[in-house]
Nucleic acid binder design. Structure first.
Lengths: 324, 324
DNA sequence: TTGAAAGCGCTAACAT
DNA sequence: ATGTTAGCGCTTTCAA
């Protein structure tokens, strides 16, 4: 089962492959009959042009990479979805890679993207364990998402300005009478982890509460981590509320909190991070910090399609606290 | 900013590009010094091999396409995730395309996959509006997922044997005293829609109930459709229970049911389809038909990596009814 | 209106 | 151990 190429068609028709090429691209410089004959035969044979050849010649559509920790979390899924749509309408080819928040996977994905001549990458940088090396993105235009890696401070980043929302969440809990509010978030080697924790501390103090260190739980962000930390908090039973600072963490912690309230009758107030649709459907709704996904995705594509990557002032999108 | 190629490196070092090629692929036929010098220079210059060139030569890693209606639904997201993992370990390159259940998008995705020389596609066939034309998958090995398109009956398909589970769900509802059970599912031009509806009808009759046609709601499966139909059922208020036959439909209907119970105090029993994690967290848990995602994904990769596509007997995976 | 040649980056197969 | 040639599929440039 050999591939159909312009040459095989040319052979089949007893003409030069150039004529076939021209006919297939609707060049005016082919006799109408020839053109139609060629197109007909091409259709019959099931001809498809070879993308690799186009890439080699350099006239391929722009390829954009998207590196996400995973695709199961609704935030990331929505982002991918929205970005795919936006790319479509700009005739950009989107390639999604999952890093699982692991630097090795991340670098492998970046390498593959360079191999296919991707011109840009949008990436959620993985927490860099031993730190040290900047991810190598070669000559690809790089845009960081959500987190900003400290070792590439000049890379444009699309960030969430969630400080106010987190402070509002803290205030909300304090107003409801909670004096011991636990926080679960990412380690401070992630910019997002740092910022969110700061906001939490600040919010707590603004509410006139103290922030004992044992109320603060950080680690590499993941569903399992959120789950574990929440269980610890439930065990200790000193805190009466939990506030989360991360998409995965939030889902994990929420699952632990729900299990806890069912199986052990441990009630605890909860504020999540990110706003997957089901947060509105659970019990009477889960209060949360809402992040404007679609706007982020659009900005990403904007940054890719325009040259001036330096509107960085406007690359922070405000999150919103939703009380439910 | 010119790309670094073996030729540019060769030039830079004043040697032949072949030596560079050999050095970079660790061929034994290069002097150690030469090899090391080349590798060093390549690293400095940030060389990455050109995937397009490899594809043209035909020694590229196998490419596998995955066509999904969307990636936001947790079932599809998990499938993509699991398949990505499995592909990784078989050194297959996975490319995901979203069809939005639209035939035109679907064909476009298939074309692109052929252009990049994908050897196989795993696809959830879109409902074919005017029917007629089979999706053109060229010479790619095609595997259908969940649904089986009637115009390609000999294509291997990975299906869910959900009949028993759906009948169990119906029995469950009947046992709870429901005599008017509404069904929302896909149109019968989808094999899955046909099969599930049949199972529902059969289950209802087995429970000694009649199945008035106004209890059956079908259409092109989507979140919005599930939502709309559920609202209609709530309006009519003849049914006391809803059973869903589709991933998207289920989520849509569930959202309508929850809204309904909150805003208008219309209580109705609900059994969903698919088992996104949050179904366990809502109220006291949502009963549902559970589909074994991971197994499906693994089978897909199995089928791709082995030649014998014809173990089709074992390509149906049993769903499980989960009462919550 | 058609064709022939060259070249994109790479490696297998021959030289040397 | 190293270099040369050819060819994967395609289009741009130049020639007929």
């Amino acid at each position: 089962m050999n591939r159909v190429t312009i040459k095989s068609i040319a052979n089949d028709l007893g003409i030069s492959h150039m004529t076939v090429s021209r006919a297939l691209s609707n060049s005016p410089n082919v006799q109408k009959e020839t053109r139609e004959a060629v197109q007909k035969r091409a259709r019959e044979l099931g001809y498809v042009r070879n993308a690799a050849a186009m890439v080699m010649r350099g006239d391929a559509p722009k390829i954009v990479g998207l590196l996400l920790p995973n695709i199961v979390n609704e935030f990331y899924a929505r982002f991918a979805n929205d970005m795919a749509t936006a790319c479509e309408s700009h005739s950009l080819q989107l390639i999604i890679h999952l890093t699982n928040d692991d630097v090795a996977n991340q670098q492998q994905a970046l390498d593959r993207l360079q191999e296919v001549q991707a011109s840009s990458v949008v990436m959620v940088p993985a927490p860099n364990g031993t730190d040290g090396d900047t991810p190598n993105t070669g000559s690809m235009r790089t845009i960081e998402l959500i987190r900003q890696s400290r070792n590439a401070p000049d890379t444009p980043a699309i960030l969430v300005d969630d400080g106010p929302a987190i402070r509002a969440a803290t205030a909300h809990l304090a107003r409801a009478g909670h004096t011991h509010i636990a926080y679960i978030g990412a380690t401070s080697d992630l910019s997002s982890g740092r910022r969110r924790l700061e906001a939490f501390v600040q919010g707590t103090m603004e509410a006139g509460l103290t922030v004992p260190p044992e109320m603060i739980h950080t680690g590499a962000p993941s569903f399992a981590m959120g789950c574990d930390k929440a269980n610890i908090i439930l065990e200790e039973s000193r805190a009466t509320a939990i506030l989360c600072g991360g998409f995965e963490i939030s889902n994990g912690a929420l699952s632990a909190v729900i299990d806890g309230s069912r199986n052990m009758e441990r009630k605890i107030a909860f504020v999540g991070y990110g706003d997957p649709s089901f947060y509105a459907w659970i019990e009477n709704g889960v209060s949360t910090v809402h992040v404007p996904v679609t706007e982020l995705a659009h900005r990403a594509v904007d940054l890719i399609t325009t040259q001036n990557g330096e509107a960085s002032a406007s690359n922070a999108f405000p999150a919103k606290f939703i009380a439910r």
